[in-house]
Design a protein around this nucleic acid. Structure first.
Lengths: 147, 147
DNA sequence: TATTGTTATACTCTATAACTATA
DNA sequence: TATAGTTATAGAGTATAACAATA
């Protein structure tokens, strides 16, 4: 049913089981490609700030599923590294707005570039038909994980 | 090129960039589905022992990319939890063999079952053609991450 | 008084260095 | 003397509880 090639034998189990194993392995390899020595938690948080604009520590903590004190600490670490900046909210003095600096944006860009490069090298070795399959699969996976 | 549907708009960027984002998001959701309160590092290590049979602490440390002392600690934790057992190597008294207990195997089975269930529920809502695309994509991804 | 964020403190995880036991 | 593993110790990271400032 769709596979008569040689190479690595298809592992036992249904589609869900095969997908689980392969998706987790792929993401593990992808995550290993990064710039600098920030932990994955810091990288993820910084990427969130870069992508979703100025955010309060509370919003960030909720999005990253950590407690506010942990987020406070992460923000301070990245602020000391020159990747984030803090400003007080214009209308509500209790709140704080966290913004990425130029260096922070560059860091995120570089990490994404490296990961894309890792993938691109592998995609380049595929046939156009295989790339089309991955493109279609990406849309399906995006749909079922965001709906 | 292959997509005229509505729903979530295709994000900007090439295939590598879209794949990176979607694969990382999918794996994040998948990882969130698990049994019990073991950390991902402990779960991964336990799965390794269950799948790849009795292993020495040194081999395990290498496979999981942690240092031997860290592995010693993880083994002790899982041994105290009744999920792993230690026996001395039959011929070399310096070495130790780590084996999964019945409870350890059950734990791994349950985690895999939950993750598969999470995926299966979503796969069930797809058309046969879409499932075939994911099946083909899985084989391609498996090939490029294990070759 | 309620809300936002930070500081104080403790626990877990992982690393390097030092140690024990066996080959 | 070399190797496999563990214990000692230190440094991140994250949590809960207590605190400070603003609405």
């Amino acid at each position: 049913m769709g596979n008569e090639r040689g190479c690595a034998p298809r592992p036992p189990g249904g589609l869900a089981s095969r997908l689980r194993t392969t998706l987790l392995r792929t993401s593990r390899k992808l995550r290993a490609e990064h710039a600098g020595q920030l932990s994955e938690a810091h990288r993820s948080m910084l990427g969130n700030v870069v992508t979703n604009g100025p955010l309060t520590p509370g919003e960030l903590a909720a999005r990253e599923h950590v407690q506010p004190p942990s987020m406070s600490r992460m923000i301070r670490t990245l602020e000391e590294a020159g990747l984030l900046a803090r400003t007080t909210h214009p209308s509500d003095g209790r709140q704080v707005l966290v913004t990425a600096t130029d260096a922070g944006r560059a860091y995120v860009r570089e990490t994404r570039r490296r990961r894309d490069e890792w993938l691109s090298r592998r995609l380049a070795a595929l046939t156009p038909a295989e790339r089309q399959i991955l493109s279609d699969a990406e849309e399906i996976l995006r749909r079922i994980t965001t709906q």
